[in-house]
Amino acid sequence: MPTELSIFLSSGFLLRALLAAVLVGFVTANLGVFVVLRKMAFFSDAIAHASLTGIALGLLFGIHPILGAVAFSVLVAVGIVFLQKRSTIAIDTVIGVFSSAAIALGVLLLSYLPGYRADLFGYLFGDILAVSRNDLIVLGGVAVGSALLVGWSFRAWLGIAFDGDLAKISGVRVQRMEYLFLLTLALVVALGIKLVGTVLIGSLIVIPAAAAKNVAPNVRSLFGFAVLFGVSSGVLGLLAAYALDVAAGPAIVVTATGIFGLSFLLKR
């Protein structure tokens, strides 16, 4: 095993994958805390599914697929919020419609792409071993940017998670902060696609934060635990995938689920 580990660490693409797992684990866990506290797990899944359509549109129109993913995810997020506020349809129904439609539309659009696309499976379930140096720079930039954004918006988002009306009366610009949250969520989803794909990124946002909530005695430690679980899931999942020769994305999510199981047993 030590020899295998040294081979792992000495190979450039595996090391880049490890760094990517740490970065994505850190960012998804931080934002995941707000997703879980605001009971938006299903919503973040819908945004993740919508990113598949965005990727397909990007590939069809020659735009960078990740840019397409961010743009379409934001569009779907705004669409869900708009319909929720302007209609009497229950929110879970609205999300369900958008989520299914986005996946279906994404697959339909992908079938219009000429020839065989080997990277499609990667968009669906992640292809962390294909992370390039440039990808890592973009990941690092988005990770730092979203971490700063979470730090800046922390009080407002926490206040809104506690009670939206109270936050508004206390001077928080709730609507503006809501849209900023959706934009950040779409960015983080796009960031995680390379790691676990559009199908599983929702889980990577929700599971570490949910596990942290099981054991954290207060909000201060909640973020610490979430980041610890998010980064551990990424690193341990990647090592497990390497050792067992299985796909990295699903291995990371299964590891995160294992951590959640343990946290449930230790639940306060």
Partner: peptide, 17 residues
Amino acid sequence: VDLERGFPMTVEELLLL
């Protein structure tokens, strides 16, 4: 307040906001 069950915010943290 419609809190997520197990919302871990303490009373002190609420007032610190």
